[in-house]
Design a protein around this nucleic acid. Sequence first.
DNA 1: CTTGACCCTCCAGCAACTGGAAGCCCCATA
DNA 2: TATGGGGCTTCCAGTTGCTGGAGGGTCAAG
Lengths: 131, 131
Amino acid sequence: MNIGEVSQHTGLPPKTIRYYEDIGLVKPLRDANGYRAFRESEMHKLAFLGRARTLGFSIEDCRNLLALWEDKNRASADVRAIAKEHLAQIEAKISGLQEMRDTLSTLVRDCAGDDRPDCPILKTLGTAAAI
Amino acid sequence: MNIGEVSQHTGLPPKTIRYYEDIGLVKPLRDANGYRAFRESEMHKLAFLGRARTLGFSIEDCRNLLALWEDKNRASADVRAIAKEHLAQIEAKISGLQEMRDTLSTLVRDCAGDDRPDCPILKTLGTAAAI
DNA sequence: CTTGACCCTCCAGCAACTGGAAGCCCCATA
DNA sequence: TATGGGGCTTCCAGTTGCTGGAGGGTCAAG
């Protein structure tokens, strides 16, 4: 399978697939003309990576998950630990963003948004310790 | 004021302050010995930047907000537009993360997390179209 | 034989810093 | 007066995860 076909099947751009090869996540064979030749197993790995990335796992997480995926004797606890850690990070990110959203939506609500220069948003950014 | 003092007052690391000078957000004077000499106004700008960054505004947003902050004739509508746009981005990010969290927490919940190899997390990453 | 769609490699750049090396400068203490 | 420690300077490189583009080979159709 050429990179284009793999790209279509996995939804990953060719550039990304090449990048994943660069950093050692996949190791496609090569045809005589130098083209990458992906086996089914490589394509499955890439699909796996695409899904893990969609869930926000870092590349290093993906590398570990992939190793566990390939290891038929792995303990599910190992996978779960990675996922739980990642889940905690996501939750932290969400609450950080929610804080931002709350502050910001208050400011936006209180701003007249007309052609006068008076603006609580700038006033807050300029002076508040409340951020 | 030296960079260290400004750093203490604003909470921004010296490295960050130098970086902000590099990209033209602040323009401190220089002492005879080459040290940066910040005036009050520069320090206020940096504090402003720190708060805007805390609210997740991009550097380019900050540049625009700063310009509006300095412009005593600005229309508050201009500020509000930037803030609203940013708010929308934050909300999009939040819902993306919430989707991740929901999927991931289901997976984590369903995973025994013991020393057996059977693991719904990897199973899903390996096969599901549901992500 | 040419055209257009592939594919290749390599280099640069994005955001927003952060770390580290190499080297002044200033002040207090022995 | 030497010296030690901190603070300041510049510049370069690295972070994450790609993405864009240049410059060039390959392949299949007409």
